[in-house]
Amino acid sequence: QVLVIRIKIPNSGAVDWTVHSGPQLLFRDVLDVIGQVLPEATTTAFEYEDEDGDRITVRSDEEMKAMLSYYYSTVMEQQVNGQLIEPLQIFPRAC
């Protein structure tokens, strides 16, 4: 299952990153890619938005798994409803 992660860049749009092994993705892998997209920032975590629009911070593989399972459940709903699949949007955080 292909996963598209949209890395939101403060004040300048976003970069889409296509991942072919989504469920095996590790927290460190995401930080590495964010580091390539935002080389001047030191990113130690990132956030995503849940169904209520609240930002949830991801700082570990466990939290990463929770984010992915949340995302895959929303994708299934979108597929069932015949909607366009939205990329998983993440917001890098420099701490």
Rank of each mutant, 00 (worst) to 15 (best):
Q1C: 10
Q1S: 15
Q1V: 10
Q1N: 15
Q1G: 15
Q1Y: 09
V2H: 08
V2A: 10
V2P: 05
V2F: 05
V2L: 08
L3R: 04
V4E: 08
V4W: 07
V4H: 14
V4Y: 14
I5C: 02
R6D: 00
R6S: 03
R6P: 02
R6W: 02
I7K: 03
I7G: 03
K8R: 12
K8D: 06
K8M: 14
K8V: 15
K8W: 07
I9E: 05
I9A: 10
I9S: 11
P10N: 08
P10S: 08
P10T: 04
P10L: 02
N11S: 11
N11P: 10
N11I: 07
S12A: 14
S12E: 15
S12I: 07
G13A: 15
G13Q: 05
A14N: 14
A14I: 09
A14W: 11
A14R: 04
A14L: 06
V15I: 14
V15H: 12
V15W: 09
V15E: 03
D16V: 03
D16A: 01
T18M: 05
T18H: 07
T18V: 04
V19W: 07
V19K: 00
H20Q: 14
H20A: 11
H20L: 06
H20R: 14
H20N: 08
S21T: 10
S21P: 15
S21I: 05
S21K: 14
G22P: 12
G22W: 11
P23R: 09
P23I: 07
Q24H: 09
Q24K: 04
L25A: 05
L25Q: 01
L25R: 03
L25F: 02
L25G: 04
L26P: 05
L26D: 09
F27W: 03
F27S: 02
F27T: 05
R28P: 01
R28W: 04
R28I: 08
V30C: 14
V30Y: 07
V30F: 11
L31W: 00
D32V: 03
D32P: 02
V33W: 11
I34T: 04
I34N: 05
I34Y: 04
I34C: 06
G35V: 05
G35D: 15
G35S: 10
G35C: 05
Q36S: 10
Q36H: 05
Q36F: 03
Q36V: 08
V37W: 09
V37K: 05
V37F: 13
P39L: 00
E40A: 08
A41R: 09
A41F: 08
A41D: 10
A41T: 11
T42Q: 13
T43P: 09
T43M: 07
A45M: 09
A45E: 14
A45D: 12
A45F: 15
F46K: 02
F46Y: 04
E47S: 03
E47I: 02
E47L: 04
Y48I: 05
Y48W: 09
Y48A: 00
Y48N: 11
E49G: 01
E49V: 08
D50C: 06
E51N: 12
E51H: 12
E51S: 13
D52I: 11
D52V: 11
D52K: 13
D52E: 10
G53Y: 02
G53L: 03
G53P: 01
G53S: 03
D54C: 11
D54I: 14
D54Q: 12
R55I: 04
R55N: 03
R55L: 08
I56W: 04
I56D: 01
I56N: 04
I56G: 00
T57C: 14
T57P: 10
T57E: 09
T57Q: 12
V58Y: 00
R59D: 15
R59P: 02
R59G: 14
R59V: 03
S60P: 00
S60N: 15
D61E: 05
D61K: 02
D61T: 00
D61A: 01
E62P: 09
E63V: 01
E63H: 05
E63L: 01
E63Q: 07
M64L: 13
M64K: 04
K65Q: 13
K65Y: 03
K65D: 12
K65L: 06
A66G: 10
A66D: 13
A66M: 13
S69H: 10
S69P: 02
S69E: 12
Y70G: 07
Y70I: 03
Y71E: 02
Y71G: 01
Y71D: 00
Y72M: 08
Y72W: 08
Y72A: 08
Y72C: 06
S73G: 12
S73P: 01
S73I: 05
S73A: 09
S73W: 08
S73Y: 05
T74G: 07
T74A: 11
T74D: 06
T74I: 09
V75N: 12
M76V: 09
M76Q: 12
M76G: 12
E77K: 14
E77P: 11
E77H: 12
E77T: 13
E77L: 09
Q78L: 08
Q78M: 12
Q78Y: 10
Q79P: 11
Q79F: 06
Q79H: 10
V80I: 12
V80F: 09
N81E: 09
N81D: 15
G82E: 09
G82S: 09
Q83N: 11
L84H: 14
L84W: 08
L84I: 13
L84K: 15
I85E: 08
E86H: 09
E86W: 01
E86I: 01
E86P: 11
P87F: 07
P87K: 12
Q89K: 09
Q89V: 12
Q89F: 05
Q89G: 04
F91V: 06
F91G: 02
F91C: 06
P92Y: 00
P92V: 04
P92N: 00
P92D: 01
R93L: 15
R93H: 15
R93W: 09
A94D: 11
C95S: 14
C95A: 15
